[in-house]
Design a protein around this nucleic acid. Structure first.
Lengths: 225, 225
DNA sequence: TGTACATCAGTGAACGCGCGTTCACTGATGTAC
DNA sequence: TGTACATCAGTGAACGCGCGTTCACTGATGTAC
């Protein structure tokens, strides 16, 4: 996919088939959920026999891992470009870059709900993610922290959580954000997820209100402004 | 279970076995997730043959339905008794009864994470809940609305969400709560779920902070106070 | 209190299914001289 | 440009497994007279 220029025809073909397998896998996840992902079913859909897939993925777990990796990467890319756009426009009204980021996440999640749920939903039983995936997911946290930092410093008394976060900030790595910003980023993340995951899981169905407005309202009063 | 007094020995035995089946089912769900629930495995654990379970549950779906029903009922009971306790103590500091309710939900969820996730997590693929379950889940919403009503009326300008909720309140039934209270109840629900579901799904693992403090902080600035 | 019958729990065999995965093999595609 | 060989995609058969569910049957428990 990346450098098709230097690739041999065989390599190009391989990449193509791998891509199609993933595409079918996403379709299947969208209808039956991730835990029911079946290699044989994918092969049948592609007009191949089951064992043929083992030329492309060592086993089922490797395929799922690649799907999760792709999902994380796609989300990180989406956030990155949204952050850049926010920086260019210099839109400081409201919650700074965070609001732009939030709507980017929401759009990304609604475009393909199962992709969001594969990452942030109930974990696939018996599956454990490899290390490089946690690395990408911490990239995402960094993007959130950057965006949360673009607002003016807090003008509020220190909370117990601030105090706690000052010394419990493994997840922030060496990011220079102060506790109030860490709090802001965590609130941002959990509130977005709260609305989004209930919406995607269908828990607002039949309730009669527009989730988009609740989503926006939850962003309107993030802490530390 | 309810009236063992008037029950014949056979009825009592039946109820007992049904209860044990459910107990084993919960154990199984706790380790492998709900989508992997297997009747045969439960039977084996109980030292019976697989088909024997069909004396007690018509099929797998009926068992899952009962588990979900029990979970909803248990949550509703927990909320109800927490609300009563809050009313007795008359604890109006902080967020009124909502804070008490929130901690009741959190304790309930942590006691058995998979039970919470069975209700509010990613839906079990291919399963659709019967009507009486939505009835219990709307009881829960009513309890939230009651608790959200115990605080003083809002002193803030009307938001777009308030405006929207004034005419989009199917879920509130004939509850007399004004839009600001509806907003408060929805925020309460989604924020609780945001922190709790990420925590239960293990997404805070390795981040190094205490989810309880974030949970408390999210309740500290609910809207409409 | 004892006998005849009905009810019901549980068994074992069986059906059909789909799964992940392995293995030996065929046939096409690319590579080296 | 042509031949000999290596690489690699894909097949079909097979293994072992566990699943939900049905069915005819045994044996114990309760009920009616």
């Amino acid at each position: 996919m990346a450098d098709t220029g230097t690739a041999t025809p065989r390599e190009r073909y391989r990449a193509q088939v791998r891509a199609e397998i993933k595409e079918r896998a996403w379709q299947q996840i969208a209808t039956t959920g991730a835990s029911a992902l079946s290699l044989n079913a994918i092969a049948k859909q592609m007009g191949m026999s089951g064992p043929a897939l083992y030329r492309y993925y060592a086993n089922r777990d490797e395929l799922i891992t690649e799907l999760i990796r792709d999902a994380y990467r796609s989300l990180a890319d989406t956030l990155r470009s949204a952050a850049e756009k926010a920086a260019e426009e210099g839109s400081e009204e409201g919650g700074g870059g965070l609001v732009v980021l939030a709507h980017a996440v929401r759009a990304w999640a609604l475009r393909d709900p199962q992709r969001y749920l594969l990452i942030y939903g109930t974990p696939v039983p018996g599956y454990h993610a490899p290390d490089d995936i946690t690395a990408i997911s911490s990239q995402i946290m960094t993007l959130l922290l950057d965006a949360a930092s673009t607002t003016t410093p807090p003008r509020r008394p220190e909370t117990p959580l601030d105090h706690h976060l000052a010394t419990h900030r493994d997840w922030a790595g060496d990011h220079p954000a102060p506790p109030a910003v860490l709090h802001r980023a965590l609130s941002f993340w959990t509130r977005i997820h709260g609305v989004l995951s209930l919406e995607l899981a269908g828990h607002f169905a039949g309730m009669g209100f527009d989730p988009a407005l609740l989503f926006a309202a939850e962003l309107d009063d993030l802490p530390a402004r």
